[in-house]
Simulated scan of single mutants.
Amino acid sequence: MTKNKNYQSINRGVIHIDESPIALEKYRKYLPLWLKRYLPIRGGLSQDHHGKAIFGFTVFLLSESIVFLSLIFTYLGLRLIHSGNWLPRGISGPQLYTLVVINTVVLLSSSFVIQSAENSLRHGELKKFRLLLFMTISMGIFFLIGQGTEWNKLDFRLSTGLVGSTFYLLTGFHGLHVLIGVILQVIMLSRSFIPGNYDKGHFGVSATTLFWHFVDIVWVFLFSLLYLW
């Protein structure tokens, strides 16, 4: 067998040597287990399609976070510059209604439910996975309906100055991501009824779970910014 310094054979897989200038593996051991699964190990196993795909999806979510950050910082800048006349006369602005609080609790709780669903699939508990994923889908739909109900109650619209344009842009863009997350979950649930579909891996479920966690984390920032400030 021809030896090459750039790789070495281990069992059936090939581990690509990490040639980065920073010894990432040295610091990786200090990270929590839930975070390690999203990071490459020594370049990654050539057979480890799941790990590589998850890492690529994580990078995609980081790019999405930049979009959200740009919108959030734009909101902050406009809010600070126009602090004296942020709300037009007669407009109360976003209010912390009971519905908003319930919506937030439901959405954040759904992260625990979908994570439990993925863990169930990993342990081969297909019926439990379906039940928990269906619960997550229902919670996501509940949030979307609640958000639509809240929009209908507000005393301002998209065209109502900066408060209207920024509020609907931030919550609408996040709502779009919630809808996408729900659609992805429906697809994953549907695929679970295909015999043997997840026998060789479940990257789609892992990516959907990670996407849902991302959506929930973003909402924590938006909720604090729009309703608590």
Rank of each mutant, 00 (worst) to 15 (best):
V178G: 04
S9C: 06
P94W: 11
W219M: 01
T2D: 06
D199F: 00
K29V: 12
R42E: 15
L132N: 09
M135Q: 14
L33M: 10
I217D: 00
A207C: 08
W229S: 15
A117N: 08
V105S: 01
Y27L: 07
H49K: 14
L133C: 10
S190R: 13
I10V: 14
T74E: 11
I187E: 13
A23R: 04
L61M: 14
I183E: 04
T160R: 14
G201E: 10
N152H: 12
V106D: 00
A23F: 00
T166A: 02
G51D: 06
T208M: 05
Y75M: 08
L228C: 06
F193C: 05
F156H: 02
F173Y: 12
G77N: 09
I102K: 03
L96S: 05
F211S: 09
K200P: 00
I54C: 12
I141E: 08
Y38R: 15
S111P: 02
T208Q: 04
M1D: 01
I10N: 05
P88F: 05
S138R: 00
F193E: 12
Y168F: 09
M1R: 12
L69C: 07
I22R: 15
I22C: 11
V163R: 06
K26A: 13
I114Y: 10
N6L: 12
L222S: 05
R191L: 08
N103C: 06
P40R: 04
L24S: 11
F156V: 02
S111C: 11
K29Q: 14
A207E: 05
S111N: 06
I54M: 15
G201I: 00
G84D: 15
S83N: 04
H50S: 09
Q147D: 11
I194Y: 02
G146Y: 06
G93V: 00
L121V: 01
L158Y: 06
I91W: 01
P40V: 13
V218Y: 05
G146M: 07
V215K: 09
